[in-house]
């Protein structure tokens, strides 16, 4: 098989804060086989060509959400993207767009994690129950209202696809707003009022302009654009009726 081994050129956007003033491209020639992912290409570089290359990875099977990066300008999980698709022209790999580059292909996740905490990403029970009362029951249709939005793996590809986040990082962004909707849409949850203080702000649902690319790039089919935009109508109704609904004005 060795004689059929192909070589592909991988251009990597390097950024070493201690020596690079700004990111620079570095090119590597990587031998590959048809079953190799982009992540495996980078691992080859780190093992055999340049040990200083930094990138995040963990599971290699599209569930940990660590290895997101721009592959030829598109947000991708590098473990789920194959080198063969870029042969023979080669490919370019950048750190995820719209996020600050920490080093090479690693971005800063600080903003994401801070925002993630702020939306209370857990069920706030509508009615507290004791163990003796048993579990919270839910119909399949009630489950369908949020299930899709619960598949998020926090890979941040949607942030790299969202120009509104890139233009204005105070916008909460697609993934976290989708997660917020995931809990708000859960029939067992009663935390909507707490969470929608953010949702109804410019930093919340209203920061979205329905570009829709977040939903295209999501490797888990979460559809953040839908999670966000379906709340605009409810938010608008709440805006206009808050003074006539009991307790609406304080929200």
């Amino acid at each position: 098989m060795a004689d059929t081994e192909k070589i592909i050129e991988i251009q990597v956007l390097r950024y070493r804060p201690e020596q690079d003033k700004e990111p620079v491209l570095q090119s590597f020639k990587v031998p590959f086989t048809d079953d190799m992912s982009v992540l495996q290409g980078l691992q080859y570089i780190k093992d055999f060509l340049d040990g200083t290359l930094s990138f995040r990875w963990s599971c290699r099977m599209a569930i940990c959400g660590s290895c997101g990066m721009m592959v030829d300008g598109k947000p991708k999980l590098s473990c789920k993207t194959f080198l063969r698709e870029y042969y023979p022209q080669g490919l370019r790999v950048d750190a995820l767009a719209h996020l600050p580059i920490e080093r090479d292909l690693m971005v800063s996740v600080e903003d994401f994690v801070t925002k993630l905490e702020s939306i209370k990403p857990y069920i706030i029970p509508k009615e507290p129950r004791t163990l003796e009362q048993g579990e919270y029951l839910q119909t399949p249709q009630q489950r369908d209202m949020y299930e899709q939005f619960s598949s998020c793996i926090n890979c941040m590809l949607c942030y790299a696809a969202c120009p509104q986040y890139g233009l204005n990082p105070s916008f909460t962004g697609p993934g976290i707003l989708a997660l917020m909707h995931r809990y708000n849409a859960d029939s067992r949850d009663g935390g909507q009022a707490e969470r929608n203080e953010l949702g109804y702000a410019d930093e919340g649902y209203w920061g979205c302009t329905a570009v829709g690319y977040c939903s295209e790039v999501c490797p888990k089919g979460v559809d953040p654009a839908n999670a966000i935009n379906q709340n605009k109508m409810a938010s608008a109704i709440n805006y206009f009726t808050r003074f006539i609904t009991p307790g609406g004005a304080e929200k």
């Binding site: 950024y15 804060p17 990111p23 300008g73 600050p100 920490e102 800063s108 120009p163 570009v211 829709g212």
Partner: peptide, 17 residues
């Protein structure tokens, strides 16, 4: 020293945009 990339001309970056 986190590096923030410019958004200039972002909409030309992708056919979707």
């Amino acid at each position: 020293r986190p590096y923030v990339r410019s958004m200039d001309g972002w909409w030309k970056r992708d056919a979707y945009f």
